[in-house]
């Protein structure tokens, strides 16, 4: 089970690299979102996956899941949500201000002091 999720997160991160290397801003943003998903899946796997166990330490329960990675992922997801929403607004501002969504065409913009 761990092996499958690790391979899955590898696929996610690999495709995110492919997306981020393209020229369109929207593709780059989708790439960053995919990267964060892959990383979060990796974080979940690192706490070891056990199916059907409670994430609570209780004297009556002998086998329990580590609750910490889940709490950490929730925090990381919230942060990734905030970043993705900000980067979307920024991308729209850039599209309106610079008139293009192609990063290649943004290179030659002169510096204005």
């Amino acid at each position: 089970m761990e092996l499958i999720t690790i391979i899955l997160s590898g696929i996610l991160i690999g495709s995110s690299v492919y997306m981020m290397l393209s020229k369109s801003i929207i593709r780059i943003i989708i790439g960053t979102a995919l990267l964060s998903h892959g990383v979060h899946l990796m974080l979940l796997t690192m706490g070891r996956l056990k199916q059907g166990n409670v994430p609570v330490l209780d004297p009556e329960v002998s086998s329990y899941t580590d609750p910490l990675p889940q709490a950490l992922i929730l925090t990381a997801i919230v942060i990734a949500f905030a970043l993705t929403s900000y980067i979307l607004v920024l991308a729209l501002r850039m599209y309106r201000e610079l008139g293009t969504d192609n990063v290649e065409e943004m290179k030659g913009v002169p510096h204005d002091d």
Binding site: V78, S85, Y86, L88, V89, L92
Partner: peptide, 17 residues
């Protein structure tokens, strides 16, 4: 906070359009 942030972002995008 979360509801406000999500709606503010959507509103900003909609206003820009």
């Amino acid at each position: 906070t979360v509801a406000g942030t999500a709606l503010l972002i959507i509103k900003l995008i909609a206003e820009e359009d």
